[in-house]
Design a protein around this nucleic acid. Structure first.
Length: 703
DNA sequence: TTAGGGTTAG
């Protein structure tokens, strides 16, 4: 979705920054707004040149189709009680309870404060002052307690507390922060007066709950009625444009802030960095970051998150070290991100350092950082470390449990995953759809079909979670592993929704393993209809034909591949040696030590051939010549292993990371390489971990 | 009186 609203859309930030013409573009052009019914239905905008005020521009709000339509005058607030009624209350001193409530809130003991408040509610008639109500508002916000909000507000109203502008804003904030947006909106609409804080509070609440369109409507109404906005408002609206992923609107807001002289505001800058990176322009995000006069922790965090979001993990890591060296305080957000980035890179040394730094900086008990660590250690292949971190966590949420359950599943430890899942239920943690995905996938990897079925059926029955397509795909994979192809097909046909591509893909893979030509062809045809340009679907069917010796059909698939111009995408593997990643592609010749690497692979292949290894060239296209075939059989993981064996001491387990699923030929070869070299090799591929040691792999069920 | 960012799966 793109809204072509900005006159300066094609300008770069540099041009906007250096734009000295005082005829600043108005925010939204009227004619173009006509097309944006969803975003600005009922509102149009005109620009009144005669009434320019500082900062050079003003927006006037009017109706597009019915001429001017002023907003209705706000009704008086209902919260005011008649004075005559108020005189009926008996005022009593609060006997130090008020000061106790304020003290409790000061030390973040919110529950205690609300418990003390109950005394007022039971006995009634106590004289409660602004400072105590203020504290109670903070207690409700701290606990995000809807019930607390209702209790405090009811007490205010029933005791005739007269709300001034400050207190009205506080009450509004209390509702907004506790997610009571309907009540908050009613309070806002009924306010006799609204100041900048009132507008900012309601708009920011709308952005927080994701109602960006309504936030924009209110923002524009605010301009029409109130004619003021500051850095706070702009920071919130920039967040809203990030939520809508509308960079064009974000740019306009950026331009406005520059013209108003608030472009350097910390909150505005941070919101801009976040907006640009979420809208896909990391260059603009970096530009804004560079322009920040003072680079704050949040600024650094946002730019690191931006790089990570775009898959630039190495750059994100570099930024983290720059941040550390700049002396800016790092916080739990920083460490959570860095651990996650390390998990993605499988960068052991960096992650260990980040773990140590996290503890040194006092964030050792942060729930998110620890969850990221659980994920990292399980992705690194050290599930026992992950368990250790998990057990030490004083506070866990469903994501922490999911991370470890998925970790067990990926290590082929299905029983442990199910046990942990049961423990989670006993501790009354509500599982979500990700939990079931993790546990079903664990059952599938470990061949626990009965348990898998039981858990699958319990989803809707006991946990009120409707199985989604991914859960069905897990079950199809599980049945497929056991060769129950008809049952798998029945499950697809019995699904309460249209079968998705990954469900058919799971069946197709099962057909390849169990060499069921007819059903495989049927699944492949379904897949071709849904994903006509996905190469993998054709390759799986090609493998089925090759395995069955059906040369004619195989040639037909190759012909289709060529006709469609589908080519194998190069996929890579990498190994970290002395804090540096070495990346290899299949048949890669770019590494400076390529000669030694190929000699090593040749030697390894010769050695394992003595133990019965025969290269499997069934997956190769028929027209590949012998020399090319030999190079292609040296898949990226074999090159990474050869380099790793040459460069690391024998007692260190070799960690290889792959962006793709390990092929069965490599699986077979690596088992033998581990045996002849006596080295432990851990491969993390797209779907799970493989621990190769003494001629065995942790996942003997591999298929 | 109002404020920014982080963790699991896919």
């Amino acid at each position: 979705m793109e809204i072509p609203l900005l006159r300066y859309q094609s300008l770069t930030l540099d041009q906007i920054q250096n734009h000295n013409n005082r005829s600043f573009p108005f925010l939204f052009s009227k004619s173009k707004c006509l097309n944006q019914k969803k975003l600005f239905s009922g509102y149009g905008f005109s620009f009144n040149k005669t009434k320019w005020k500082n900062p050079f521009w003003k927006i006037k709000c009017c109706s597009l189709d019915q001429g001017l339509r002023p907003r209705p005058k706000p009704k008086p607030a209902k919260v005011n009680i008649d004075v005559s009624e108020r005189s009926n209350f008996v005022r009593r001193p609060s006997v130090g309870i008020c000061s106790q409530i304020e003290k409790s809130v000061l030390f973040a003991r919110y529950r205690e404060a609300l418990d003390l408040f109950e005394i007022f509610e039971i006995e009634g008639g106590f004289d409660v002052g602004i400072s105590t109500y203020d504290a109670l508002v903070n207690a409700c916000i701290g606990l995000r307690s809807v019930r607390g909000v209702k209790r405090v507000f009811n007490y205010m109203v029933s005791n005739g507390f007269e709300l001034d502008q400050y207190m009205r804003n506080r009450v509004l904030l209390m509702h907004v922060k506790c997610g009571m947006m309907v009540d908050a909106r009613r309070l806002f609409d009924e306010m006799p007066e609204r100041n900048l804080v009132s507008w900012n509070t309601i708009i920011s609440g709308l952005v927080d709950v994701g109602d960006f369109v309504e936030a924009f409507r209110l923002f524009l109404t605010m301009w029409a009625e109130f004619s003021d906005a500051g850095s706070f408002t702009f920071a919130v609206m920039i967040r809203a444009s990030a939520g809508l992923e509308l960079i064009s609107i974000g740019r306009q807001l950026h331009a406005c802030t520059l013209k108003m002289g608030i472009g350097d505001d910390i909150f505005v800058s941070c919101a801009l960095i976040d907006m640009y990176s979420k809208c896909g322009s990391i260059e603009d995000a970096h530009f804004t970051f560079d322009k920040m006069p003072e680079k704050t922790t949040v600024g650094w965090n946002n730019i690191i998150a931006g790089y990570a979001l775009h898959g630039y993990s190495e750059e994100a890591l570099e930024m983290y070290y720059e941040m550390r060296d700049s002396g800016v305080k790092m916080d739990h957000f920083t460490f959570s991100m860095i651990v996650r980035i390390c998990a993605r890179l499988a960068s052991v040394e960096h992650a260990k350092q980040a773990h140590a730094a996290l503890i040194r900086h006092g964030f050792g008990s942060d729930i998110v950082a620890n969850t990221a660590l659980v994920d990292f250690y399980s992705k690194w292949g050290r599930i026992e470390h992950a368990r250790h971190v998990f057990d030490k966590m004083t506070c866990k949420n469903v994501i922490s449990w999911n991370a470890l359950i998925a970790g067990y599943g990926n290590h082929g430890l299905g029983r442990e995953a199910v046990e942990l899942f049961e423990q989670m239920l006993q501790e009354r943690i509500n599982p979500n759809h990700v939990t079931f995905l993790a546990v079903l996938s664990a059952c599938s990897h470990s061949g626990l079909s009965e348990l898998g079925w039981e858990i699958f059926h319990s989803m809707g029955r006991d946990n009120r979670i409707k199985p989604r397509a991914m859960h069905y795909a897990c079950m199809i994979e599980l049945l497929g592993r056991e060769g129950l192809l008809d049952e798998a097909l029945a499950l697809i046909r019995g699904a309460p929704f249209k079968p998705t591509a990954n469900m058919w893909a799971a069946l197709l893979t099962a057909c390849r393993v169990h060499e069921n030509l007819e059903l495989g062809k049927f699944a492949a045809e379904k897949l071709y209809g849904m994903e006509p340009d996905k190469l993998n679907n054709y390759v799986v069917l090609l493998n089925i034909y090759n395995s069955a010796g059906n040369i004619k059909e195989a040639a037909g698939v190759v012909h289709t591949l060529k006709r469609k111009g589908l080519r194998m995408r190069p996929v890579c593997s990498w190994v970290e040696v002395k804090r540096q990643s070495h990346v290899f592609l299949s048949g890669d010749k770019r590494h400076p030590q390529r000669k030694e690497i190929y000699e090593k692979v040749d030697k390894l292949m010769l050695e394992i051939s003595n133990y019965g290894y025969v290269p499997d060239n069934k997956t190769l296209l028929p027209d590949v010549d012998e020399q090319e075939a030999r190079i292609r059989l040296y898949h990226s993981e074999k090159l990474a292993i050869a380099f790793g064996l040459m460069s690391t001491p024998y007692w260190v387990p070799l960690q290889i990371v792959q962006g793709h699923r390990i092929c069965s030929d490599c699986h077979k070869a690596i088992k033998l390489i581990a045996m002849v070299t006596g080295r432990e090799i851990v491969i993390r591929d797209a779907s799970r971990f493989h621990h190769f040691k003494d001629g065995h792999c942790s996942c003997e069920d591999y298929w």
